[in-house]
Write a protein that binds this DNA or RNA. Sequence first.
DNA 1: TTGCTGACCGACG
DNA 2: CCGTCGGCCAGCA
Length: 117
Amino acid sequence: MAGREQHHSDSFFTNVFAVVRLIPYGRVTSYGAIAEYLGTRGSARMVGWAMNASHTQVTDVPAHRVVNRNGLLTGRHHFGSPAIMQQLLESEGVEVRDNQVVRFDEIFWNPVKELSL
DNA sequence: TTGCTGACCGACG
DNA sequence: CCGTCGGCCAGCA
């Protein structure tokens, strides 16, 4: 099968961006959950790398809705200032305390479950 | 090419 | 609860 080889990560990144755009307003998900949904369970770090590049996208990518598995805002240093990620979440009604999403279990949006209808 | 570094995660001790 | 390790893989010196 001499199909097209995907010799770089554009496709993976594009898929990550697509999933992130599906996270509902006021909800959050995790790097690992996105990786698992895309079938690359161990590649959560690549999801973070994709978020690092998400600012280059023309279409908005709500990267502030992606936190780590414990609800910690581990990506906050990659926004203009460390407070922006929290401010964006709070503007959506997501409560944040000590860099962690409050009631994380309740507002966690799992693409593996929500998108596998 | 090698070796390191990460917006991660789960398993161990 | 804490620290550490291996796996993951793109980018970079």
